[in-house]
Each structure stands twice: as structure tokens, then as C-alpha cells.
Amino acid sequence: MAFFARFTDALARLRRAPVQLTSTLLWNSYFLAPWLKNVPCPGFNCYSCPLAITACPIGTLQHFIIIRRVPLYLLGVLGLIGTLFGRTACGWTCPFGFLQDLLYKVPLPKWRVSNRWAPARYVIFALLVVIIPFIALEPWFCKLCPAGALEAGLPMIALQADLRELTGLLFAVKMVILALFLLWMMVTSRPFCRFVCPLGTIYGPFNRLSGMRLHFEESRCQHCDLCRHVCPTGLYPPEEIDTAGCIRCMECLKACPHGALQSCATGTSCTERSHA
């Protein structure tokens, strides 16, 4: 469908940071639309953040598992986002992804971590989001979630004195996890998205099935490796574009001077980006 090719092409022409900033402000604009909390956030954003207007899909999923109900509405909405756009939300609208992009700009020596550890996110998803909440009847991913610690834990403790008295070992553990992730985000690009994020784990498989697709045209590739250097998730786009780890940030499309990386829609021919 031409729509997806045009949409992808339009995204590839946009600067990502302003879109990410707008999304982050939108998902945390409580005074604009507090009634939107019945809508799952397309990105990773804690619903206990005092300013959040949408529901955290992972927190919601755990609560449905705990009460032994199949979350048809939640899985339907996430499936629709995935079927239409794959992991595009990760690259463009996720507040926690935006935080990682910002922290990686901190001028510190960088630590490249191999993507061979990426399957860890499937284990984390299975254990902390599904199996342990099912058995223990408690949302264990939320208990350890660094996004919750940052967006809910710190502001709520700062705002409500009575909550401060209830903090204990779990809060301390959560703060340590948050601190470790914040440090890791400064030296490794998008570590949470690559190795942990349960929402990215859900969206990932849709990259190969979604209406929106990215494509590598081998005959145009000059093997300059510019795409590899700009990929925030450490992928090698000629071989790994549109795999489950691709967050569809389009940085590789923008960087390729030969038009070897293209936007396209499933079942249709791909559109080469025009280069200035």
C-alpha cells in the first residue's frame, strides 16, 4: 500500500528528537486529557507517573494475568500498532527510548555491547511479565522497573510525605536498578530497548509482518558501513534491518548516501529515498 511507503518516507525526512520530545510531553500531559488512561501507551511510560495520561501496556498486561483474564483489548491495540507500524513506536514515540537517546549523548567513553545478549529480553518477558506474576499474583516487572522508579517512584516520594515513610528494601533495590540503567544508558546505546524492554519484545516480531517495511537493496550498497555506525541498537542494517531488534528509527535510511536502504510496504515495490 502506497500509504506505508509514503509514511515511512515522510518519517525518514523528519528529525527524530522533536517528535520524541513532543510524544514524551503528550504522554505526560495529565491536565490535557486525564480520561485517556483507558488507552494503552504505544511507548514505555509508567502509568503511576503523576502526569501520565495513558496506561502502561506492560503494567496492564501483568494485572490482567494476575486476575486471570485474557486482555483482548490490550493485546488487540498492541497488535494493531505492531501490524501497522512494527517497532516504529520504539524509535519515535517512546519516552524511555528518548531518555536513552539523550543520555547516550553524554560525553563519556562508550561501551559497545554485542546483540548476542538481546534474547535476554525474551527471558525477562517470560519470567517477570508472565510466569512470576501468574504464580505470585504480583506485578514483578513493575516492582523492578527502572522507568517506574524514575517516572513514579521519585516524583511520588517527593510529592507525598506519607509514602516516604513506607519506603524500604524494595524501594532501595529499585533505585539501585535505576541508577545502574542510567549509567549504562550513558555508555551504551539503547541498552534497555535491546536487552530488557518487554514492550519491544511484543512489537519486535511484527517488524517482519507489518504494513510498513524497510528494505535493503544489495545492488546499491557500496559497503561504506555508515549505516552500521548510526544504528542506535547496534545492528548491521544490510543484514538486520527490519529484524525484531530494529526500532525503525530510520537513521540508517538517512545515513545511506547510495539509497541502498529503502522504505516500502509489504507486498509492494520499495521507494528509494531521494538524496540531496
Binding site: 480520561w35 488512561k37 483507558n38 488507552v39 494503552p40 509508567c46 502509568y47 503511576s48 501520565a52 495513558t54 496506561a55 502502561c56 503494567g59 496492564t60 494485572h63 483489548y73 490490550l74 504480583e138 506485578p139 514483578w140 513493575c142 516492582k143 522497573c145 517506574g148 522508579a149 513514579a152 517512584g153 511520588m156 516520594i157 509514602l163 513506607l166 519506603t167 524500604g168 524494595l170 524501594f171 533495590v173 529499585k174 533505585m175
Partner: peptide, 16 residues
Amino acid sequence: VFANASLICLSCIGIQ
């Protein structure tokens, strides 16, 4: 989903 998301999640804060 609305009711759940409107509550303060003590697990998210790190209290319970």
C-alpha cells in the same frame, strides 16, 4: 484498564 491505571501502583513506586 482505566480503573487500574488511575490507581497509584505501589509496585511501580517501589513500596509494595
